[in-house]
Simulated scan of single mutants.
Amino acid sequence: MKISPVEKLFTTFNETAIILQEELSCTYLEALAETGENIFEGNVLQEGLSELSIKRLEKKYDELKLEDFSNEEIRKAYQLVILKGMKESAQPNHQMTPDSVGILIGYLVYKFNKNESIHILDPAVGTGNLLTAVLNNQMNKQSSAIGVDVDDLLIKLAYVNANLQQHPVQFYNQDSLEPLLVDPVDVVISDLPVGYYPDDLRAQDYKLKANEGHSYAHHLLMEQSVNHVKPGGYLFFVVPNGLFESKEASKLGEYLKENVIIQGFLQLPLNMFNNKSSAKSILILQKKGENVQPPKEALLVELPSLSSIKAMEKILSQIGQWIADNK
């Protein structure tokens, strides 16, 4: 039976990660970052490995030619091995944006941004799966990006992910709500981590800080994102459906009204989530600026099952028509 390119890549990533995991006495995800770096550099970089393991790794690396695979094949295979590792480590903050959502956001970014070149920021980049899915969908555009994450293992996986797909991405391993020393970007994308931000002192720098107690991290990240996008630039956030129903919602609403135009709210299918309370949507914003006009009416869509090709084609065609009518 012929194996697919994604399966072939998965097998190499997985088998070489297991060898390194045993040799280095580290977690599977740490070993995965190490093997990804080896594949990118074309060399076994770790010291102190047994001769047998080095030979086994070299044999598997030699059999793999990255140029034989598309970026999407590399991204999907790498995503699958990361998911395997996450199941083993079961860390609650290690969650990945579903594939279909990443590809949909990539389509939206491509359609909304008319420039020939595009510079993207993801302030909660995680393993880089959403960011690289979006970059892979910017056909014929010169694209570059910035990824920020406080988790040093996730950022290393993201760095390897971008390298294997040859995307020009700068990574910053820091708290995204600390000052970001980056130039304003054309587009911000983020699957916003939802919850409370523990640093009340840092939160004081933000208009969206809570009047009492901890502030919402996802609100502060939205404000940080608006601060770092150019006037007229777009922001695509994966947000909880109840974003505008929380106790801080009125303050968020006022802030958004003052600084951005709400272009759209796309509700993801409920069958993607374990329960209704964890359901999410894609919020599309545009930063106010010269000649930035609000749409005749915002794009409000309840998306069908993302696995239904016919229904998705129909809705994407409607979204394309809405963008053409409103731009």
Rank of each mutant, 00 (worst) to 15 (best):
G36E: 04
P193Y: 06
Q204E: 15
Q267F: 13
H119G: 00
I54E: 03
D62C: 00
D325V: 05
K207H: 13
V301M: 08
Q138C: 02
G126F: 03
E212R: 13
T97K: 11
I323D: 11
G264T: 03
I315C: 12
I19L: 15
Q286S: 07
L181E: 15
L130C: 06
K314G: 01
W322L: 09
L266G: 04
D175N: 15
Y61P: 03
L266K: 04
I103K: 12
E63S: 11
H94L: 09
V150R: 09
G320P: 06
A124E: 03
K247N: 12
N71I: 00
L235M: 15
K280W: 02
Q95K: 15
P240Y: 07
K55P: 00
S215P: 01
H228E: 03
V81F: 08
E72Y: 04
V150C: 07
K288S: 01
A162M: 05
L300I: 14
S50D: 12
E313T: 10
E51Y: 01
E297H: 10
D152C: 00
G320K: 07
P179E: 14
K314Q: 14
L283G: 03
G264W: 04
A133F: 08
Q142H: 09
P5D: 07
V109I: 10
V44P: 02
N115I: 05
P92C: 01
P269F: 10
G48F: 02
D183C: 03
G213Q: 10
D99S: 14
L49H: 08
A298D: 00
A210E: 09
D99G: 15
N241C: 11
L157V: 04
K114H: 11
S246Y: 08
F265R: 08
K84R: 15
S53L: 02
K111T: 06
D99Q: 13
A249S: 15
M272W: 08
R75I: 05
Q138N: 04
E178T: 14
E41N: 13
Y216H: 13
G320D: 15
M1Q: 09
S308E: 13
S250F: 10
C26S: 15
G102A: 12
I189M: 12
K230C: 01
